[in-house]
């Protein structure tokens, strides 16, 4: 515990006290190995929880939205994978962009992405969302979602089958598994 950075240990301001106590707790947790223990328990647990409750935003743009609907139907039943389509971006983890994005839609989609809480992922589904697709030279279609939103998984197809959509979500599973999403503190 180093008090030299805080010479007025007796009378600290509130801000200083928060900083000091945070550092003290940090040091204790790291030094005693509690952090390692917590990480060992919490990382797989949180990771498992996040992976199995990915809520995509129910935002159908074009014909890929029909495949999305088929995917949520009884035959493919994506709720067994924990994919529940929610209507509010505040309750969502995954932004599933399924269709061409016109220049008028772009600011709205960007805003939906900003409104989603972290951690969040973006899936570009179908050719139009990946690169513009059949409208690769159109005057009003954005040439790919990745020009204004970071995309994690691309699902090619025009439109992709529901199996492909599920495969894309399982690939996102692998990506989440590799990320240290459940670690207790930053190293």
């Amino acid at each position: 515990m180093d008090l030299s950075a805080y010479p007025n240990a007796i009378a600290m301001s509130a801000k200083e006290f928060v900083e000091w106590s945070t550092n003290v707790m940090d040091d204790i947790v790291r030094a005693t190995g509690v952090k390692r223990g917590l990480d060992k328990v919490m990382d797989p647990l949180l990771n498992w929880g996040v992976r199995n409750s990915m809520y995509p935003l129910h935002f159908g743009i074009a014909c890929c939205a029909l495949e999305m609907a088929a995917c949520s139907g009884p035959r493919y039943d994506n709720e067994r994978l924990g994919l529940v389509f929610r209507s509010s971006p505040r309750q969502c983890d995954v932004l599933l962009v399924n269709g061409w994005v016109s220049k008028k839609l772009r600011p709205a989609l960007r805003r939906l992405y900003e409104e989603m809480p972290e951690p969040k992922w973006v899936i570009a589904m179908g050719e139009c969302a990946i690169s513009g697709g059949p409208w690769y030279d159109a005057y009003n279609v954005v040439q790919g979602v990745d020009t204004f939103i970071p995309v994690d998984v691309y699902i090619p197809g025009c439109p992709p089958r529901p199996e492909a959509l599920i495969d894309g979500f399982l690939r996102l599973h692998q990506k989440i598994k590799k990320s240290k999403i459940g670690t207790f503190m930053d190293d």
């Binding site: 220049k103 008028k104 690769y136 030279d137 159109a138 005057y139 009003n140």
Partner: peptide, 19 residues
């Protein structure tokens, strides 16, 4: 179309181009 467009896309001399 967005209000700031300066061209009329269905005219024959309107050029569309790739990225």
């Amino acid at each position: 179309l967005p209000a700031d467009y300066t061209f009329f896309p269905l005219r024959k001399d309107c050029k569309t181009g790739g990225p």
